[in-house]
Design a protein around this nucleic acid. Structure first.
Lengths: 208, 208
DNA sequence: TCCCATATAGACAACTTTGACTAATCGAGA
DNA sequence: TCTCGATTAGTCAAAGTTGTCTATATGGGA
């Protein structure tokens, strides 16, 4: 039961921990996660509780900034780190012809894996897509032959093929960029970090 | 609140009415609607009740085949027909860069609209996609300039652009096929109907 | 000084989705 | 004739999603 929501929230907690729900809500909205992964604010709080129930994240404390409402801050547990890697790997290596969110989620969190694994996974996707495209071609032929299958089913497979080819081209270019040293991955040091601002106040000098 | 589930179920009731839930469940599964629209059996029965509550479909009776469990059969109401057209038009004319199901749903139910409107809508999508692709290019440039935006956001826009271009190519080819007379639309007569088998028993001579 | 728009942090009820489960019936083969 | 697996038709509790609502606090302007 690893919905994109849980993976995105777990990955975000991993990157910004210790972090509270409202920060994630703002940060993920700047990522436009509501558009490409259909994650609305309310779902984030639910995902946090759900991940907590599974022991993947734990409450690390409660803060209060002045007399603002109290915040509950979360951290990823060791179990959660393992689960995060497992979920990411599954997203990287499993090709679902109709799952168009997987690649978006990957783009956001691939840095948690190593550069080598991501490149290998992408190359696997590329060949895997070749196979699916061939399968689609036979589906289209079958549809043309069959008298009971609605003819327009062809269109769904044509579109699926077109989309997958597009993803394949993108994956090829991304592999090239990654082999050329683009971005920074787990275990690599130096350069601009791939992540955004730290979890502290975006515009406050509170720490003093 | 017009989720793909509601549109698909309403469209399917329209095509097969009077029809019972279990028929829809089997028929939609042969369409692989669980793969490309994430509609599981349980959701179909829920959508029927939800559409009934809104007055879009109405119970047209209950049948019983031998001593099998009773079936509740549904029909689309006049209100529901209007709503179906409205929902379909919205799906046809509105381009959402990250909604990858819209085009699939369209493929299945475009025949409820007229050939002319579908062609016009597809042509609108094609130019609309040009605009989104240009927007994406600027997003990518902005990302490269900005010091706060994570660099990898670029990948999401690159992928979005690739997918949209693929959909555009598909739409162009579909327009050509439609202009060439492919498929049969609302108001057109003759030829093979675009829909599948009738709602009666798939393998029984009950009517006598 | 007071006021109001905005920000903060999260809760919540209504709704939808999931997929295993039920309870009966049919039918092919022993 | 009997048995056992598949089919039928749909239910249900658990989970996830939605997006408005709350209650406070801040800060800039009249």
């Amino acid at each position: 039961m690893s919905s994109p929501t849980r993976l995105v929230v777990l990955g975000a907690v991993h990157q910004f921990q210790p972090v509270h729900g409202y920060f994630l809500r703002r940060e993920l909205l700047t990522w436009r996660v509501d558009e490409w992964a259909n994650i609305q604010p309310g779902s984030i709080y639910n995902a946090l509780r759900s991940l907590e129930k599974d022991g993947y994240v734990a409450v690390s404390g409660t803060e209060q900034n002045g007399k603002r409402p109290e915040r509950t801050t979360y951290e990823v547990t060791p179990t959660g780190e393992v689960a995060l890697l497992r979920m990411l790997r599954e997203t990287l290596w499993k090709v679902d012809p109709f799952d168009t969110q997987a690649a978006m989620v990957l783009s956001s969190f691939m840095f948690i894996l190593s550069r080598e694994e991501v490149i290998a996974g992408l190359q696997h996707r590329i060949t895997e897509i070749d196979a699916v495209v061939v399968t689609n071609r036979y589906h289209i032929e079958d549809t043309a032959q069959s008298s009971t299958t609605p003819k327009y089913v062809r269109e769904i497979f044509e579109l699926s093929t077109a989309r997958l080819s597009a993803e394949q081209t993108w994956a090829r270019e991304l592999v090239e960029r990654l082999q050329g040293g683009a971005y920074f991955f787990s275990g690599e040091s130096g350069g601009t970090p791939a992540v955004a601002a730290p979890p502290d106040e975006p515009s406050a000098e509170s720490a003093g």
